[in-house]
Design a protein around this nucleic acid. Structure first.
Lengths: 204, 204, 204, 204
DNA sequence: TATGAATGAGAATTCATTCAT
DNA sequence: GATGAATGAATTCTCATTCAT
C-alpha cells in the first residue's frame, strides 16, 4: 500500500468525471432546466441510480460540474496573468484565454450563463466565483498600477467592468451566433479598455 | 361616449398589471424556475384560474412581464440618449437611467438576468431586446463619432462592451449587495469607457 | 289573463331552445366530451351565467337536448307506425323516418351515439329511451303478428335486432361517411328482416 | 440462453397487463370519460407515476386496452368462421362467440360502446375495428353465397346489419341487465337473419 | 457497487359553477 | 333577468429520489 488512493477512489473519480461531462453535454443540448437526471445518466452510460452513488442530488451534479469548469477557466486565466508583462499584453492573454475557453467548450456556456436560479447555496457559490474572477483581474490591475502603466482607479470596479464586457461578448458569440475572429474581439476589447473612446481625455 | 374604453377593459388591464407585478415579485424572491403559477396567483391575491383569464400560459406571464419592463427600461434609455449633448454626458445619463432603474425595480433583475433557458420564441425575444439595447447605444456612439468626439471604432462592439459592463455592475449591486452610490458607479464607468486605463495610449 | 303562459315563460322557453340548439351544434362539432358550457353559451349568443338560469348544470343541458331530440325522433317513428298497412310498408316508413332524421340532424348523431358515460340518472334515461323505441317496434310487430303477416317470434327480440341494425347503418352513414341513397338502405333492411337470407328456410 | 426474453420484459408485460386490466375495470365501473389515471393506478395497485413507465399517456392506456380486447374478440370470431360449415351453423358459432365474450368480459362493454369522442387517431382505429369485424362477416357471407345457401345480397350491408343487431343485443344483456340464456339469443338471431319474419316472402 | 422500477409530490392547465353588479 | 369575472377542484403528466435485488 505505497499509495493512498485505492482502486475504488480511482473508479469513483472516473465515474464522477463521466457524469459531469455528460451533464455538461446534456445542459449544452437542452438547457439547464430541461436537463434531467435520466438523460444525464444515459449520456454517461450509467443507470440513473448510479448517479446518486456519486452525487447527492441533481443540484450537486450541476454545482460540481459548473464548479470544476469554472475552476478550470479561472486556472487558465491565472496562468495568463502570472506570466506577466505589459498590462495590455496580459489583458490580451486573459481575454484570449477566456474567449477561447468558451469557443472550445460551447456546452459550458449554457451552464455558465444559467446562473440566476437555484438554492441560496448555489447563489453563494456563483457570487464567490465572480469574486474570484474579479480578484484575478484586480491582481493584474494592481501590478500595472504599481508599475505606473495605468492611472489610479478603483481596480475592483475596473475588473467588474472588464468581466462584464467579456461576458457579454462571449454571450453574443455563442447565443447570437456571431462569428468574429477571436483575435479581433480580443484586440478590440483590449484597446477599448486601455485607451478609451474619447479623442480628448478628461472631463471638460 | 366620451371614452372608448369599457369598464371591463380597465379592470382587465388592472388585473393584468397586478398579475405581472406579482410575477415580478415572485421571480424576484424565488427565481424564474421556481416561480409557480400558484404562487404568482397568491401573490396577486387571485385564484389560480383567474390568472388564466388574463394570460394564456405561464410562459406568457413571464414573457409579458419581462417585455413590459424591458420596454420601459429601453424607453427611458432612449430618452436619455435623445436629449443629446457631449457623449460623456449622454453616457452618464444613460448609465444613471439604467442603474437607477434596477435600483428601483430590484425584483426585475432576476427576470432580466435569467436569460438562457426557455422556448425558442422567448430566446428570440431576449436576443431582440439585447439588440435593441445595443442599437440605442450605437446611435449614441455614431453621433459622437460624427462630431469627432470619439475615435473610430466598431460602434456595435463598443456598445456590447458597455452593455456588458453595465449589466455586471448592476448584477453586483443587487445580487452582490454592494452599496456604492449610483452616481459613483456612473461616473466611474463613464470615465473608464471615455478615457481608458492606460497612462500612455496606443500599442507600443 | 285568458292565457296561462306569461311572457316570462315564453322568453324562457325561447332561451331554452336556443341553448339546446346551440348545445347540439357544439356537440356535433366538437364531440360531447369537448363541448364546454362556455362554447355552448357563445353559440347560443348568451353569457355563460345565463345558461345556468335555464339549466341546473351542464349535464342537464345535455340531457334535455338529447331528450327532446329523441322524443322528436320517436314521435315521428310513432306516426310512421300508426299510419298502418302491411308490415313491410310500415317498416319501410319507420326506417325512412329514422335514417332521414339523422341525415337531417347530423349534429344529433354525436349526442345519440355518445351514450355510454354519464351519471346513473342519465343511464336510466338512456335505457328508457331505448325501451320506448323498442316498444314502438313491438307494437308494429304485434299488429303484423295478429294479422298473420309474420310468423310468431318474440317481438321484443325482433325489435331489438332491428333497432340495432338501424343504429349501425346510421352510424356508418355518418361516422363512416358512406353515401348510399337512403331509399336503398331502407329497402335493403326491409327485405333482409322480412325475407331473411337463406334460400331454404328452416333448420335442416 | 435458452430464452430471449429478459426478466425485465416479463415483468414489464405483467405490469402492462395489470394496468390494462385495471383500466378495463375502472372504465367498466365509471365509464370512459370518468376513468382517471389516478384511479386506474390505484386499481392496478401501483403509483400514478408507474403507469407512465408503461404507457405514454392516458389515451395510450385506453387505446391499448381496447385494442387488445378487440383483437382478442375478433380472433375468436375468426376461428368461429374458419371452422366452416352451413352458414346457419357458422353464424350460430359467431354469435355464440361474441355474446359469450361480453358475458365473460362485462367491463369491456363500456370501452367497446364508448365510441364517439376521442382523438382523430382513436376514431380512425375505432372505424378500422368495425371494418375488420364487418370484413369477417363478409367472408362468411360470401362463402355461403358461393355455395348457393343464401340469396344474393350486398354482403357488406348484411354484415353491418348483423353486427348492429348483435351489438344491440349485447348492450341490452349488459346495460339493460337482461338475463336470457345466451344460446336463446343466438338461436333467435340466427333464425331471424336466415329466415326473416314474413310468412310469405317477397314484395307483393 | 450497479441497476432501473417504483414512487408521489408538484406543476400547468381546464372548466363547471357561483355570485356581485 | 343577464352578465362574465372569479373560483378552485380535478386532471394529466414529469421527474428527482429511493430502494430491493
Amino acid at each position: 500500500m505505497s499509495q493512498t488512493v485505492t482502486k475504488g477512489q480511482v473508479v469513483g473519480e472516473f465515474r464522477c468525471r463521466a457524469i459531469r461531462e455528460a451533464a455538461m453535454r446534456v445542459v449544452g443540448r437542452k438547457g439547464l432546466a430541461n436537463a434531467t437526471v435520466q438523460e444525464i445518466a444515459n449520456e454517461a452510460g450509467v443507470a440513473k441510480g448510479t448517479v446518486y452513488l456519486y452525487f447527492r442530488s441533481r443540484e450537486e451534479i450541476i454545482e460540481k460540474t459548473t464548479q470544476i469548469a469554472v475552476d478550470d477557466l479561472l486556472d487558465r486565466t491565472l496562468e495568463a496573468i502570472k506570466a506577466g508583462g505589459l498590462v495590455r499584453d496580459v489583458l490580451e492573454r486573459v481575454l484570449t484565454t477566456q474567449i477561447g475557453y468558451f469557443d472550445e467548450h460551447q456546452d459550458f456556456f449554457r451552464l455558465y450563463f444559467a446562473m440566476v436560479d437555484g438554492s441560496e447555496e448555489s447563489r453563494r457559490r456563483r457570487l464567490a466565483n465572480r469574486r474570484r474572477h474579479v480578484a484575478q483581474l484586480v491582481t493584474m490591475l494592481e501590478a500595472a498600477s504599481k508599475s505606473g502603466e495605468i492611472r489610479a482607479a478603483d481596480p475592483e470596479r475596473v475588473a467588474i467592468a472588464i468581466a462584464g464586457a467579456v461576458r457579454e461578448v462571449i454571450f453574443r458569440r455563442i447565443d447570437g451566433k456571431s462569428t468574429h475572429a477571436p483575435a479581433d474581439e480580443v484586440r478590440f476589447l483590449t484597446d477599448l479598455f486601455c485607451d478609451g473612446l474619447c479623442v480628448r481625455r478628461g472631463r471638460r
